[in-house]
């Protein structure tokens, strides 16, 4: 095929792909978004009738998965110019969910239906940030402590362990996702979760060990020792269990695994930096070693409490 013909194909594909967006933009509703966690702002292409737009009874709002649970609209306020309306709700909205709004009688149209959702990328990024900082697996979920205290003595060890851990975490979480969705659920084997997930984790570690040994011996020499430790870590089995519990899709799984691994790396690095300083400090003999490490970790845990409620999108 010549390049000229290519352009036609690409243009046609692009047109098809863009058509849904164009169709939405032509309707009455131009833009809809969440404002805070109690309000939805809707903009219209033309001014609408105030009496209709400001009557809360004209709006039906529900979360996409449960159409039967209607969310109560407390008030609807039309902005000056009549081109945008703010819907306020009695209860907090779960802004992670897609909300469906049905409006009656706006601009003479009997029923206008549209959906409100956060941008999906923002939502995915939210999962990553949540696993990394807000629900850091070490400091707020208290998982993986054995390995955490064992390998946070030196910065270089901490970095190596963190990187290997993140790698294993992402691979094993994705594999667990595939097994969970295509084998455990279809064959109704949900009770085998623990056995299957721990088997997959051991398998991943063994596979990475073998592959790394052959493909990149230099990397293996520096990181290989940490691989064995990974199996003894609770976080690595916690992530598949959490994703099975929340029915995450593959992108969400990836983000969760990346966040969990990154969070562990962060925790290890912070802790090892303090540990290196502590070697120079004068610590009471009965607190040397683990006790003081626990108290430092407690201070980090309190600092990480400050991240709770953090919302970027």
């Amino acid at each position: 095929m010549t390049p000229a013909k290519y352009i036609h194909v690409v243009a046609a594909a692009l047109l098809f792909w863009l058509m849904p967006f164009a169709a939405v933009a032509e309707g009455l509703v131009v833009d809809q978004k969440f404002k805070g966690d109690k309000e939805i702002v809707v903009s219209f292409s033309a001014p609408v009738d105030q009496a209709v737009a400001e009557n809360p009874a004209n709006y039906t709002v529900f979360e996409e998965p449960d159409p039967d649970i209607k969310l109560e609209v407390a008030s609807a306020v039309l902005a000056a110019g009549g081109k945008s309306v703010t819907l306020s709700f009695k209860d907090k909205l779960n802004t992670a969910m897609t909300h469906v709004v049905v409006a009656k009688g706006l601009a003479g149209i009997e029923k206008t239906t549209f959906t409100v959702s956060k941008s999906y990328l923002g939502y995915l990024f939210g999962i990553l940030i949540s696993a990394l900082l807000i629900n850091n697996f070490v400091f707020t979920k208290y998982l993986g402590l054995c390995v955490f205290f064992g390998t946070s003595k030196k910065k270089s060890t901490a970095k190596g362990m963190g990187v290997v851990f993140t790698l294993v975490m992402v691979v094993s979480a994705l594999m667990s996702w595939v097994f969970y969705n295509f084998i455990l659920i279809p064959f109704n084997l949900n009770f085998l979760q623990i056995v299957v997930f721990i088997g997959l984790v051991s398998l991943t570690v063994q596979a990475i060990d073998t592959i790394l040994r052959k493909v990149n011996p230099v990397l293996f020499n520096s990181f290989g020792v940490y691989l064995v430790l990974v199996i003894a870590n609770c976080v690595i089995i916690a992530v598949p269990l959490i994703l099975a519990n929340n029915n995450y899709n593959v992108f969400e799984t990836f983000m969760l695994a990346l966040g969990a691994g990154g969070g562990f790396l962060l925790a290890l690095y912070l802790m090892s930096s303090v540990s290196e300083r502590m070697q120079l400090a004068n610590i009471p003999p009965s607190f040397k070693g683990l006790p003081i490490a626990f108290i430092v970790a407690g201070q980090f845990a309190m600092a990480f409490l400050g991240f709770s409620g953090l919302q970027l999108f």
């Binding site: 006790p291 490490a293 626990f294 407690g298 845990a301 990480f304 409490l305």
Partner: peptide
């Protein structure tokens, strides 16, 4: 978060 302190 006090769990760390108590154990320590």
């Amino acid at each position: 978060s006090a769990g760390f302190f108590v154990v320590g």
